[in-house]
Design a protein around this nucleic acid. Structure first.
Lengths: 218, 218, 218, 218
DNA sequence: TATGAATGAGTCTTCATTCAT
DNA sequence: TATGAATGAAGACTCATTCAT
């Protein structure tokens, strides 16, 4: 699971794949940016990891910043929307939905590709405020809205005791985020650190007990 | 020429230079590194923010990396130890101690100076694995040990239901960490976002209820 | 691989390629070189202006320099010779011939295509001394020879007072050159600047008076 | 008189001369730009010819374009103004003034430093329209105004026959300009080509005769 | 013939670091 | 101690040129 710079060897080395290139480059860029940060990432490294040379990147992107921004936009992209809809149709107990939702978020963020993004956002928010804004609006707020909506429903249905849904949503997500960040930050220095399964299970356990209405067994 | 004064040779690399070192440089470095990350931070910016010129920094530090590492070490430094001792002497209920402990951690991390460090660690763990290792060992593990120790005590005293203390400690700290990161990441784009008081209060409320032994009112 | 067609190998370096060569490329090259100079001219711009793609240029020319040199040679090419002969057959008064000759030169240089060449020569003589030499020998000296020949004839016929024919030839041509350069240099910034008709008429007027033998009405 | 890249060796090699640097750099830049044109000129060449290294240039100028523009502005600078005033005070015959004026212009342009500028303007007007505009307004139009003013005076005083002063001014200046350009363009390929003294004398001779009132000996 | 994706040498530009003062 | 002019290695970016199709 270590992200050492080894050029990805695609099927055959010399066919032209105009369509595939940008995606490959973004994928390579993601891992380099996540490793080094924006400033320390070298275009040549990105190119090498994508199996091309410097110049090729500039066929598809204006410059380093463009690669970076495209990355942030493309990676989230599609799946978020589908996740949203899925939740809306659900009619069962809020407790179950909440767990499922948080698990979806965890899955979403644990995907090898996307796991690096929170780190990038945190690291580069100072250099790219628009990036922070974009992510805040397009991803974080949307995800939090889904969670807080579920909590609100739970309160209405009497499954949860009355709590502030917005703040509680953040509390629900916090351990998930921390887990992602933790794994990204410390994976290189101690590979086994955190059993995510167990960690999540405990989180859900304590959380649901903590949200249970007074006098009721959760 | 022979009469020129020897440039100050610091005891190689990693020693503390207590007397002469202007803390202003480290303070300035902290804010610049937090804003830009290591690579994008310019020595001239640090110098300017410290009110000196580039050259002066090299009187006290070997190079940029030395500034960065010194920073990470010096900033934590003293206060952590004192906090540790304070906890050991405490004999009251674990619930109270836990809250107090978490509040201390929050205070520690919310200090204007130190708030930026988690962000730096996250951002630069890829470029400076030793830094991650140092922080993990010197700060995080120690802090988590205090928390998990308290939880263990609470379980022994029957205040908490039986849970894995190590994992629970992380769950306790997660929202605090997230709060710090959140404020650092999004403060520039929406200044009011998170009422930390309220956020913590809710965290403690849900957490304690979640940890309460079965059938007992927390 | 063995069945691949041999790339077209032009007779090394400096031969004319009459048949196949799309004059459009040279024409396009002329305007781009005139606008940007040799170094700043991009092959892609030339290709675009010629309605082909970069690769195509290399079917007809070895490289950028070859395009440039071909250009300088081809553009002058044919018409100069014809102009020369025409002059030799003339038998009327030198004054009339001189005017006609200068007007021919002006026409030659004012042609949309060729107007840009003096500028190119001036700009690139440093980078391409052979170009300067070629032009000096093939165009300038020949043109000046025609003019000075006419002046010499005029002196012999008593139409002009005795002057140095070579230097006078340059004086005759100077305003024409300056007009061409002027229009090329300043056309973008003030479109009307110079009425060439009037400018030439005045030049001829002053010149002929200035060359008239003492005591004679010109 | 050949402009080979030999680094100028200033008095002592290692003293700091903050004030002198920019001027030295501009001087070096002038000769490199004149030789190669803007695009082909390498910052390293300019630096070498100024006896410094690349980086030093950026202490004084923003970038290559800034060097170029500063150059165009600084070089003209002071002397033009003084020349203007000198002419205004003159009260003698216009013919004499005209000659003196043209000679001043020739001197101004023949100065080793400035001789390269017309070539640069011509070559780079396409890439730097503002430069062309600046020079047109600040130098050319002012110089032409002085000449045409003198001609107008000459007409009023009956020394010249009635001609359009603006166009005539250009005709007066044309050979001077052409001489400067000629020397710059062909000096490398035939060093003796043009005796400027003689060329100017002939120009004045023909010009004054050409401008003399009808029936009057000039 | 023609294309245009890919290459990589060549430049500008930045900035950590040095050092004479 | 402190300065800041100067250096030069490093990296972003461009574009002439190649070559598989």
């Amino acid at each position: 699971m270590s992200h050492v710079a080894e050029p990805v060897k695609h099927a055959r080395s010399w066919t032209r794949r105009k369509q595939a290139r940008p995606g490959e480059i973004l994928e390579a860029a993601l891992s380099v940016f996540a490793e080094k940060g924006f400033a320390a990432a070298r275009m040549e490294d990105i190119a090498a990891r994508a199996g091309v040379t410097k110049g090729t990147i500039y066929l598809y992107f204006q410059n380093k910043e463009d690669v970076f921004k495209s990355l942030a936009r493309e990676i989230v992209g599609n799946r978020l929307a589908s996740a949203t809809k899925q939740m809306h149709d659900y009619t069962g107990p809020a407790r179950e939905l909440l767990i499922r939702l948080l698990q979806t978020i965890d899955n979403f963020l644990s995907d090898r590709e996307r796991a690096m993004l929170p780190k990038i956002i945190i690291a580069e928010s100072g250099n790219f405020p628009e990036l922070a804004r974009f992510w805040r609006a397009e991803v974080i707020d949307k995800a939090l809205a889904m969670v807080s909506g579920t909590i609100k429903r739970g309160i209405e249905r009497g499954e949860f005791r009355p709590v502030d849904p917005e703040y509680t949503a953040k509390l629900c997500v916090a351990p998930i985020m921390l887990g992602v960040i933790w794994r990204n930050t410390f994976s290189a220095i101690d590979p086994v650190s955190l059993d995510n399964e167990k960690f999540l299970a405990m989180h859900f356990d304590i959380l649901l007990k903590g949200l249970a209405p007074e006098g009721k067994k959760p």
